[in-house]
Write a protein that binds this DNA or RNA. Sequence first.
DNA 1: TTGTACGCGTTATCAA
DNA 2: TTGATAACGCGTACAA
Lengths: 338, 338
Amino acid sequence: MVTMKKIGELCGVSRGTVDRVLNGRGRVSPQTEAAILNMAKQLGYEPNPAGKALAARKHKPLISVVLSSEGNAFFDEVLRGMKEAAEEYEIYGLEVRYHTMKGYNVDQQIELLKSVKAYSNAVVVNPIDSPRIAELLNQFIEENIFVVTVNNDIKNCNRQCFVGSDYFNGGVTACAMFEIVLGKKATIGIVTGSNQILGHLERLEGFKKRMEQLPEFKIVDVMENEDDEITSYNVTQKLLKNYPDIDGLFLVAGGVYGASRAVLDLPEENRPFVIAFDSVPTTVEMMHKGTVKVILYQHPYRQGHRSIDLAFEYLVNGRSPAKAEHVFKNEIRLLENL
Amino acid sequence: MVTMKKIGELCGVSRGTVDRVLNGRGRVSPQTEAAILNMAKQLGYEPNPAGKALAARKHKPLISVVLSSEGNAFFDEVLRGMKEAAEEYEIYGLEVRYHTMKGYNVDQQIELLKSVKAYSNAVVVNPIDSPRIAELLNQFIEENIFVVTVNNDIKNCNRQCFVGSDYFNGGVTACAMFEIVLGKKATIGIVTGSNQILGHLERLEGFKKRMEQLPEFKIVDVMENEDDEITSYNVTQKLLKNYPDIDGLFLVAGGVYGASRAVLDLPEENRPFVIAFDSVPTTVEMMHKGTVKVILYQHPYRQGHRSIDLAFEYLVNGRSPAKAEHVFKNEIRLLENL
DNA sequence: TTGTACGCGTTATCAA
DNA sequence: TTGATAACGCGTACAA
């Protein structure tokens, strides 16, 4: 096993010098630096996380979580994953603070981020896809704050890591599932969250992409519900009334409960086959009622856990993430394997 | 943060004494022992894994993996998960050795296990469900070797931990999926691996259990293929010939490729809907050909990774597994979300 | 520019 | 029955 001490011995220098070279602290002559660097590469030096963790305890590293999670049950599981990870790492001196907000107000998220900036070593955030937020997060990174985006990503931002699911593939998978259930010919109604939200659009795109293989699939309409249950109920009711021949209803985002209630208003034999995302309690309730038969599952617990894992590994063990994008599969789940 | 040192100070003894008490090494007077134990509980002492890991490096802990994996592509992913975990923990001085065999010969597995017994600190094994093997593994445990069963469990054995999937639920889920695709009425043919293998039987039981909700579902026959592709081809061919009205074919275990080839022999419009387990390359090939539409996925990579994780946590960090059974969900996957 | 010394929390050894 | 001390690998403050 190769350690700094061993490298120092082999190069005829002290361990302190090896530390300076390997951690780029300067104040080392070029030739010794070269020798040490060479030796380290030769022997495949990897810092020992246990040693790092032990030494890092003085820092009391702090992760700030900033989530637009209030009123969105999906994030309950994400938060549970984060909290279990945080507990696991508490012994290493890691602290995690949670800051939640409701909805997607850019100014509010910016304010929240700014308020944690001064004292955070890492930030885990589900960012609103706005240039102003991207710019702010880039400032975080310049000031050496580790940035993880969770559940949804943001453009033009140098965040070290994204943890989430593949939205486009979610749409593709939903469409493929409809084909299996409904056959080659189907009439599809869609209720999406918002066309302002990247992930929702990507799911729609994925769905349409997969539909290119299905010339007899028809989308009759795409309604927006703004992730609001009442709006969802109303637009779904309208959708089902305007197009009584819909046999597949695709719920792209939130508002599953409201949409399902609208479906329940129909006589059982007229109800479309419904595919939705995420197994939040209200959706599970509707699965028990039989209105929602299939959901696509995004591994929310693992998303939360992994995002803290990555920040922890960086802050405490000094390990940078192996992949910049940690994307979990969309899983198809029925009531039976929830 | 509460450490041994702090406990020692508060109790007016040295950390050495605290260590002796907390690790039950004896040679401590009853009253100091009681005081220290009390103080530790009071403060909620948890050993620091980093400290333990650092100190444990001298031990060079060794995990022996014993798998009936040869010729079974499912275990390729399990092994990949194990190897990535092993690499991750290499820096802590952990060593993992792999011992594979073909098929389920009890004597052979016993011989393999006995051969690693002398030098292993932990064993990860997919045990054959035999009393003789259970007995041997119990000996391991008595000699303080940590035992993890992976993928399938064994009865009458005190193994610390099982990592795998829920076989019964796999059957339930498969049946529910057939209902979604075929409706309330269906004629099902089943090809299982072996009635000698517990997991295969449990899947069948789960399937039948779920069928109790479906009075118009009929199982016409259950054939065994012994997980052999050629046998699988032959029995499936016979099954499909004897019962040309089969509209659902349930492949409980291995031999998916052979069975699919038999399905391919039918004209396309006569082919049943096929549900199988695991996304091994030959099965994926058949999914591309369209014979297998749906698979149930057992998270093999995670099974492998987790089993090493647990042994590592025990050996290096001294953490016993939080749960005795680590069961991953059966996931429904199509070609689109493989 | 380089080396030394200490601390992080644990285990292990040796001395008392 | 106890305590002191060294070691594990790393970070860092300070001395040379």
